[in-house]
Design a protein around this nucleic acid. Structure first.
Lengths: 190, 190
DNA sequence: CAGTTACGAGACGATTTGTCTCGGAACCGG
DNA sequence: CCGGTTCCGAGACAAATCGTCTCGTAACTG
């Protein structure tokens, strides 16, 4: 099956040239495959990219999120590790390409979210829910919102293509989400 | 000067068809302008899009951020208003198009950030800094991080093209950022 | 060994890109 | 009023890319 060769070629070219400058011809040439073989299985460039991200080992395996009993430490560790992945050259190219594909095609957006972003978000939600039930979070803590804030904050820094997020940024966001920044009810931060 | 006609046509087509399906020919035709006139002033599609966003009244004027003395209320009002703009059909198309342009071209990314995103972020930072000095925030509150979290969280929801952010989401994020979600030092939320 | 299927290769017309040339309109100096 | 200059709409053009198609070969089937 040349499917893997195609997805591998798509992945390489995606990282090399970005989504806009990726062509079907180039994928076919690098994969040593006829164009028709690509069109046989995928309807568009964005669909190939979506599958390449999902199957072609481009998608990093989920960063593990342990449960040591200390939710703040666990989330901090996770967010730092996740951020480090995002900020590698490969991770950044990937995110930019997938974001372009998402903007391009609604169906691809759904696929990518379900199979790429949502699992990370779900991981966070599950861990947060455990912590909430265990009394480490406020009983009415908005778990889905917290997960979105953690991911969205880091992603925003990557997508703006200005200063990429650092480990310190990840730490600050986690601290902020747990302790808040208001002055009335503050205990300690560090 | 046909500059404004070009930017206006680019804006219309951008909102109608999205960034990927926007063509220079179509812009020229709708603007009643020769293609050369476009190439005389802009180097690429992404550059035209960037200018269209910035000049062609596509960029919403800054949502005002008043100072009533209550930072949490002020930021809540602002974030809700800003989110409402993002979630209109026009706002969403615009954000998707600009994100695609940002992923496409590094120079355009810098321009768009400086003139489009950064002003909003700066507005938040200034207001937050005032509040911090006034003692409404913890003395060591990470002002730039907070601004990025507010904007990034909402933007993430728009870019994922799943459930768009609501006024409730904006409220939750603001509350979260001020009060935190940890259980040790919580007073009230509402 | 004949029939069938898969697929690499590439020709093809359509579309878009970016460059180039033409011709007319507006403005300028005399 | 007129010749010169500049601006710019219009569109021709080659190159690149798209998605479809056809061909020829290799592998598999019975």
């Amino acid at each position: 099956m040349s499917r893997l060769a195609i997805l591998g070629a798509a992945r390489d070219l995606l990282l090399e040239r970005g989504y806009e400058r990726l062509t079907i011809d180039a994928i076919a040439a690098r994969a040593g495959v006829g164009k028709q073989t690509i069109y046989r299985w995928w309807a568009s460039k964005s669909a190939v990219v979506a599958d390449a991200a999902l199957e072609g080992d481009l998608a990093p395996p989920l960063v593990p999120l342990p449960d040591t009993g200390d939710i703040e430490t666990d989330l901090g560790d996770w967010l730092r590790a996740w951020t480090e992945r995002l900020t590698t050259a490969e991770g950044t190219s990937l995110i930019l390409a997938l974001t372009a594909a998402t903007a391009d095609d609604r169906a691809v957006a759904d696929t990518l979210y379900d199979r790429f972003t949502q699992p990370h978000e779900q991981l966070l939600r599950d861990r947060l829910e455990l912590a909430r039930v265990a009394g480490q979070l406020a009983p009415d803590a908005p778990v889905p919102t917290i997960a979105g804030v953690l991911i969205g904050s880091m992603l925003y820094r990557v997508l703006s293509r200005q200063a990429p997020p650092t480990a310190d940024d990840a730490n600050l966001v986690v601290r902020l989400v747990f302790n808040g920044s208001g002055n009335r009810s503050r205990r300690t931060g560090v």
